[in-house]
């Protein structure tokens, strides 16, 4: 599925939580098939930005458009229809550990499936071929019927990626997907994520702590500091001075 106009569009967006303002006056446009890294110190607003991009939270001021739809104008049902085109990967602990891998993969289908099919699938797994293919793509095809809580952290992260593949969204939002994996495996996971996006033409927005990974895997870097955009440049134009200023205490 392709989409012509900007995938994400933020106009003067602010978001506060009670008294704390997490994002202030952020304007960004992200187009199809871009790979954008979000960099910034802890608390800079990276997770808030990702949550705005899939409509999990609404802005306190400004306008968020996802796939051309203004988030605040959407009914809950319409929002869900938009959300099924936006896949999410988290740092960890976001798989349902009591379910086997196949059901976690099929959770990617929930935006498409009617309730009866979703419920039936828990007893009699549906569309197993799709799920098995996705799991093979992330390199652990033998774990299809394993219980998710028996997998290692790296394997769980692969399952999370496979779930996004099953969901087959237009864009993927990844929130520090490699923060809890060792360096070797984080390279592998990021390669996997980049290749999947490249091959299927998906847009990727990924928050990272590792500047080198951001440089090697993304073509645009967005620096966030204290809830504001510090810089928004193609990777080639990001200098060490940019990075230093971003993380300075």
């Amino acid at each position: 599925m392709t989409f012509e106009s900007p995938i994400f569009e933020l106009r003067q967006v602010s978001r506060t939580f009670g008294q704390v303002s997490a994002l202030t006056d952020v304007s960004v446009m992200i187009h199809a098939q871009e790979r954008v890294a979000l960099l910034g110190p802890s608390g800079a607003g990276k997770s808030t930005l990702l949550n705005l991009l899939n409509g999990a939270i609404a802005p306190t001021a400004g306008e968020v458009r996802i796939l051309g739809h203004e988030v605040r104008r959407l009914s809950p049902r319409q929002l869900r229809q938009v959300q099924r085109h936006i896949g999410r990967v988290y740092q960890q602990h976001h798989l349902v550990t009591n379910l086997s891998v196949i059901h976690n993969l099929n959770a990617g289908n929930l935006g498409r499936w009617p309730l009866w099919k979703a419920a039936l699938s828990l007893v009699w797994p549906q569309e197993v071929a799709t799920a098995a293919k996705a799991l093979a793509q992330v390199g652990i095809p033998e774990k299809l019927y394993a219980r998710t809580d028996r997998l290692s952290g790296g394997q769980q992260q692969r399952v999370a990626l496979a779930r996004v593949l099953v969901q087959d969204p237009i864009a993927i939002l990844a929130d520090e997907p490699i923060a809890s994996v060792d360096p070797a495996r984080s390279q592998e996971l990021m390669n996997l994520l980049r290749d999947l996006c490249e091959r299927t033409g998906k847009t990727l927005v990924v928050s990272l702590h590792d500047v080198a990974v951001a440089r090697s895997h993304c073509d645009r870097i967005l620096g966030l500091r204290q809830g504001r955009i510090a810089f928004d440049l193609p990777t080639a134009q990001v200098t060490d001075a940019h990075i230093r200023d971003l993380y300075v205490l």
């Binding site: 988290y90 976001h94 979703a118």
Partner: peptide, 28 residues
């Protein structure tokens, strides 16, 4: 664990689907 539920909700699942996939397995 609310994070497991959040991930299910983020797939565009309806309330009942979130209950059957995200909540029920945890309390089963």
């Amino acid at each position: 664990d609310p994070s497991q539920v959040e991930a299910i909700r983020a797939t565009g699942a309806s309330w009942l689907q979130v209950m059957t996939y995200g909540v029920l397995p945890q309390v089963m």
